Simulated scan of single mutants.
Amino acid sequence: HHQLTPDDQFVMARGNRYSSDGEWFTYAAATKGDGSLLERSRVYIARADGTDARTLAIGSEESRTFVKDWHPADRQLLVYDTATTTRCGVYDIQTETLTWFGTGDIQEKPVVWLPDGERFLAIRKAHITTTPIVYDCQTGQAHELAVGGSCSYAPTATDELVIDAHHVLIPRSTPTIPTEVLSYDLQTDTTTTLLRTSDGAVEPSRLVDPEYITYESTDGRSIGALLYRTSKQPSPAIVLVHGGRHGRASEDYHWPSQLLVDRGFTVLRPNYRGSSGRGRAFKQLQYGDLGGHDAMDVAAGGQWLRRQDLVDGDRIAVYGASYGGYLTYVQMV
C-alpha cells in the first residue's frame, strides 16, 4: 500500500475526486488534534495506485481548501477555499497556477464544470439568498441565473446536474413554493419546470411570504432574521432556531414556519452569529463561545418580538433542533 498523508493528518470526506480518465484522484487532508481542524485543510493529488502523492498550492495556510470537480479535459481543477469567505478558483495542474473568481466578500461556491470547459456553475450566498451563477473563465465575469427564488445543491452533486452543453438542472424554491426542479436554458435564460413537489402541510393559498428584519443583540451587533406574520394579531410567537451551527434561515420553503403561522403563531427565524451567508468573520464569532453570544442573539430576538404590537408578549416560546435545540436549552437554563 501507499501512505497518502503524513502520520499527523487524515483524509477528509469531501473534495475526493477521480479524473475522468481514472488515472488521478484528488483528496483533502487535515491535521489530527489541531484545534483549528474545521478551518484548515490541504488538497493533495495522487495517481490512482496511490503513487506520486503531492500537495497542491491552493489556498492559504489558514483556510479550508477542497476540489469540487475535474475539468472535462482533466487539465484543471475547480476548487474552493475559505480564506475570507468561500470563493471559487481554477487550478491549472500543468502550469501549477491558480485563478480566483469574484470579489471575495460574498460567499460563492463552485458546483460543476460546464461541458465546454470554459465556464462553470456556482452558487452565491448572501444573507438569506442563494443564487445560481455561471462564471466565464476567460473574462472572469459572473452571470446570475434568473430562477425567481432560492436554489440549493447536494454537497456531492456534480456532472449529474448538467443536461447538455446548454441546459443545467436547478432545484428552486421560494417561501411559498416547495422545491421544484427546473431545466435552465443558458442561451435564452428561460426555465422549464420538470418536477413539482407539495408537502400538503398548508393549503397553498394560505402560505405567507416572510419579511427580512434586523434587530440589535445584547452587545449591539446587528442580527438578521425572517419574520412570518400570522393573520390574527396580537398572536403567540415562536423563535425558531436553525440547526447546523453554521446553517441559516433563508428565503426557501420552510414548512415548519408555514405550519406554525397557519396555526396562529408569529414566527421569527434569527441568523445568530455563526450563521452562514455573512462571511467567515461572522461565522468565526461563534468559535470558543458556543452557547454564549449566539444564545444571546436568540434571546434578543425574543425580546424584539415582545416589543412588537403584533405579538402577545406573555406568550413567546423558543424551539430548535440539533444545534438549534442546544441554543433552545441554553435559553431555559
Score class of each variant (00 low, 15 high):
A295I: 03
K109P: 00
S150F: 14
Y228V: 06
C88W: 14
L38G: 02
T130V: 10
A30S: 11
T131Y: 01
R87H: 04
Y326I: 14
R64Y: 09
G247D: 09
L259P: 00
S36W: 11
Q331N: 11
T131I: 09
D262A: 13
R278L: 13
M332G: 05
G243R: 12
P234E: 13
W304Y: 15
T103L: 06
A53F: 14
R221E: 12
S275Y: 12
I223F: 04
R315N: 10
E39A: 00
S152I: 13
S276P: 00
Y18E: 01
I133A: 00
R269A: 13
R42T: 14
H127Y: 12
A48W: 15
L226R: 02
S41T: 03
D294M: 12
G220K: 08
R221G: 00
P171A: 15
V333L: 08
G277R: 10
A29R: 03
I123F: 10
A13M: 02
T192N: 14
C137P: 00
P115M: 11
D252P: 02
I45H: 01
S36I: 03
E23P: 01
T179D: 01
G33E: 10
G264K: 10
R119T: 08
P115G: 08
C151D: 03
H1S: 05
Y135I: 07
D52A: 14
R17T: 01
S41M: 02
P72Q: 13
G244K: 06
T103Q: 04
P6T: 13
A73V: 10
H167N: 07
S63C: 02
D69I: 10
I106R: 04
F120Q: 09
